[in-house]
Simulated scan of single mutants.
Amino acid sequence: MDLLMSDVRLFVKAVEMGGLTQAADALGVPKASASRQLKRLEVLVGHALLHRGAGRFGLTGEGRIFLPTAKEVLEAVDQALAQLSDTNETLTGRLRISVPGYVGRELLCSHLAGFMAAHPQLKLTVNISADRVDLFREDADVMIRAGREGCEEFVARRIKKLGRVLCAAPSYLDRHPAINSVDDLAGHSFLTSGPERQAMEMVIPGRHQEYIVKAAGVFRANDPELLQRIASSGGGIALIPLLCAEGAIRSGALVSVLPSLELMPKELNLMYLPARRNTRKIRTFVDFIFEALERSIQAQKQEGPASEGGAEMFSGANPGKAELRMATQVPDQ
């Protein structure tokens, strides 16, 4: 009996997803067929590879031995297939990208048309979501996210550092005493996507140190655009990416709070699975986006001081000064 790659792939996928049913769904295999495939693989290797039963699923001792080699074999086959596909100049199939809304609109929208024009036979799907997708479940081929928490198993290429800003609506600030120092932030209501804390506290990520502030209230959401909208309506002081706050700041709906306080920027990363690093469609998209962003940055530099604020806001080189400069551009009401 010959070893079938589809059986090996099913075994590895079941381990990654924690169940045979989940693996079958991800691979588009009927549950009954998946069970037969796993049994066939176990007969071939001469050992049970997975414990499975009511409420029990996991690797056997032999499964733990077999798993690393199985992954290596699959990666080698995938790389070989990717190299063969390079002989075909036309990209086909589909490419699924998951990206937060504000990044998709501000960062990708001006570049995707060029990519689609260059590869008209590739089906491109963009999923706007603030949540991390599960690349192992094949919810997406590529995802763009701020930070790397929980993504240690992925290849992560840093796109840029996103500057962050503390900002609030003028109507909110008018109801409270002037804020001239970090200590003055105590007792305020905050809007953040940061992790929850046991006490009613807000963490302010300064570039050189973290500040813990006693808060009157902390509202958390995984969508910076939602936080920006609540802040614009007077709901509190928001800690959000500069990229997300830029439009509201220019319109006067938001103003900077402590603009001289330099905040720690957050990395914006493009991520994909290690086993797919040589997939041609992913490699082509990654190269295209990085080259396009580099051209945008160079163009902004050449345009002069009028555009430097935008470039600085995106890079997070000096969030405080970038924010202060933008606030002074708002006309008198």
Rank of each mutant, 00 (worst) to 15 (best):
A299G: 10
P259A: 08
A248E: 06
Y172T: 07
P274R: 11
N180T: 14
M200N: 15
A178G: 04
Q298E: 14
I240A: 00
L261E: 01
Q300R: 14
A216G: 14
P224H: 02
P305Y: 09
V286M: 00
G235A: 11
A253M: 12
D287A: 05
A311Y: 03
F190C: 09
T192R: 10
Q198A: 09
E210I: 09
P205H: 03
Q298T: 10
V213S: 08
L273S: 03
H176Y: 01
L268C: 13
E225M: 06
V213W: 09
R229N: 07
S251W: 00
A216C: 10
Q228L: 15
M313K: 02
S193R: 08
L268T: 12
T284Q: 03
R250F: 05
L243E: 13
E312F: 02
E291W: 00
M313E: 14
S232T: 07
I204Q: 04
V203I: 12
L258T: 03
I240H: 01
V203N: 01
M202R: 06
M271E: 11
Q298F: 02
G252R: 07
P177M: 07
V257R: 00
P259H: 03
G316I: 12
L242V: 07
G310Y: 11
G217F: 10
R283K: 12
G187F: 03
G252P: 10
S189F: 08
R197T: 15
F290K: 09
L258G: 04
G236R: 01
P170G: 14
I237V: 12
E267A: 15
K266E: 15
G206Y: 04
N180G: 14
P224R: 03
G235N: 09
P170V: 15
L239C: 00
A186G: 01
M202I: 07
E303S: 13
F288E: 05
R280M: 11
P205S: 09
L191Q: 07
M264E: 08
G310S: 13
Q198I: 10
A221V: 05
E267R: 13
A299W: 06
R280S: 05
V218D: 03
I204G: 01
F190E: 11
G194L: 13
T192H: 08
N180A: 15
E308D: 11
L293N: 02
P177N: 12
P224K: 05
A215M: 09
G316L: 11
L227K: 14
V218P: 02
P195G: 05
Y211S: 01
S256K: 02
L243Y: 04
A178N: 11
P177C: 12
